[in-house]
Design a protein around this nucleic acid. Structure first.
Lengths: 105, 105
DNA sequence: TTTTTGTACTTACATTTCGTAACTTAGTTT
DNA sequence: AAACTAAGTTACGAAATGTAAGTACAAAAA
């Protein structure tokens, strides 16, 4: 009868984390600051979506974007403190997957 | 140059968890066994997608589906052991969101 | 001086996924 | 017989996603 009484903060967290690629991008950036092209190659995401997601994560203050005025210009992306605070979630997923996920078809 | 060396188990875990609604459904089922219509109303998901996701989670052995031969027939869904093992991930997300997510626009 | 190269995006377009609302099935009560 | 209930299905338009080609800018190469 009544509906969702789920905490809005929690819902927003899920909205961010469940948006496709975001968790993988954060996982990748836990390795440290990285350039756009490095992320793209490592994660195997298209540039269209990568740009979109990095912008989203930047707006959410999870990722910081830095322009390095070299030639040609290079952009570095890194996790903010808020972004680094996601590490325990990723660790928990890692642990669960190593315990419960099998991959033979 | 080289590409993703990400653990395939981890990748599969992300694939399941990031699929929209799945995390929220698991969170809801952590409350205990529930009927189809209850889940639908509590989570606010459409029946088309709900059916799709529950089937997916059942195939992944995260959710168990039980037919109760009442009239009309009722279906109960509950987490398996593998499903319950996801609780620490959800807790970590809860903790992060309470710490870092703010919601005023 | 013109052409090519590298980096970080954009754009156009086809494919896939999603949300909405109406419909189905089967036994039961009215 | 008509209406009701629970758990889905189906049809279809809207939104998100992937793919591939294009853009801007400066400098190095030809």
């Amino acid at each position: 009868m009544d509906q969702k009484k789920i905490c809005p903060r929690f819902e927003k967290a899920l909205k961010i984390l469940n948006h496709s690629w975001n968790t993988l991008l954060i996982y990748q950036l836990l390795e440290g600051s990285q350039r756009y092209s490095t992320i793209k190659n490592q994660v195997g995401i298209s540039s269209r979506v990568l740009t979109e997601r990095l912008k989203e994560l930047e707006i959410e203050n999870i990722v910081k974007r830095t322009v390095i005025p070299s030639t040609p210009v290079v952009i570095e992306y890194e996790l903010t403190e808020k972004g680094h605070a996601l590490a325990p979630i990723l660790k928990a997923i890692e642990q669960w997957s190593s315990m419960w996920v099998n991959i033979e078809e």
